[in-house]
Computed example of a mutant assay.
Amino acid sequence: MANSVPATETWRPHVTVACVVAVGERFLMVEEEVNGRLAYNQPAGHLDDGESLTAAALRETLEETGWTVELQHLIGVHQWRSTEHGEAVVRFSFAARAVSHAPNRPLDTGIRRALWLTRAEIAALDDRLRSPMVLLSIDAWLDGRRLPLDTLSYLPEGGSM
């Protein structure tokens, strides 16, 4: 059943981005403090106003891990109601290739460290995963889901097609 929203308000989900970055059998992950507990996620975060989805994915990965990446594909768009805050989340998951690392770059507030884990190690984290979208994105990548990046369009303010 859908939540009812007063007629004067417009319902808006949280729009987020995430990157699946694989090197061999390991995936780039972040260990972060969320509401007083340690959680694990891909490099991920919210879309900022005026920002394209692809720019947000690149920015979040750099800010949370110190890794500069090159986006290769859109893996999928996932919709979920967060158990953290109870609100709807729409997540755009990208496949990305690691390009370079700045190990001395300060990481975002709350991020403890970036680490590389296998799918089995990530699955073993179970309820310490930030959301079910972590494994959903990795499994989509492992299953070979690849959409071209030009599937997405960005029209800056005042832009036209």
Rank of each mutant, 00 (worst) to 15 (best):
A2D: 11
S4V: 10
P6M: 05
P6G: 02
P6F: 01
P6E: 11
P6L: 08
P6N: 02
T8N: 05
E9Y: 13
W11F: 14
W11D: 10
H14N: 13
A18H: 00
V20D: 03
V23Y: 00
G24N: 13
G24A: 09
R26Y: 02
R26A: 11
L28Q: 14
L28E: 14
M29R: 09
V30L: 05
V30Q: 14
E31G: 01
V34W: 08
R37E: 15
R37M: 08
A39F: 13
Y40G: 14
Y40K: 12
N41L: 00
P43R: 02
P43M: 12
H46C: 02
H46G: 05
L47Y: 02
L47Q: 08
L47S: 07
S52R: 04
A55C: 04
A57W: 11
R59L: 13
E64H: 01
T65K: 00
W67Q: 04
W67R: 04
L71M: 04
Q72F: 03
W80P: 01
S82Q: 07
S82E: 01
E84Q: 10
E84W: 13
A88M: 07
V89D: 00
F92T: 07
F92D: 10
F94E: 13
A96S: 05
A96R: 05
A98G: 04
V99S: 09
H101E: 10
A102V: 02
A102P: 00
P103F: 12
N104F: 02
P106A: 14
P106Q: 07
D108W: 04
T109C: 01
R112I: 14
R112T: 11
R113S: 14
A114D: 08
I122L: 12
A123G: 01
L129K: 05
M133K: 11
V134T: 10
L135A: 10
L136N: 06
I138H: 08
D139S: 14
A140Q: 13
L142N: 06
L142C: 12
D143G: 10
D143N: 13
G144F: 03
L149N: 10
L149Y: 10
L149T: 11
D150S: 15
D150Y: 12
T151Q: 11
T151V: 07
T151A: 08
L155C: 08
P156L: 06
P156V: 02
G159M: 13
S160T: 07
S160E: 12
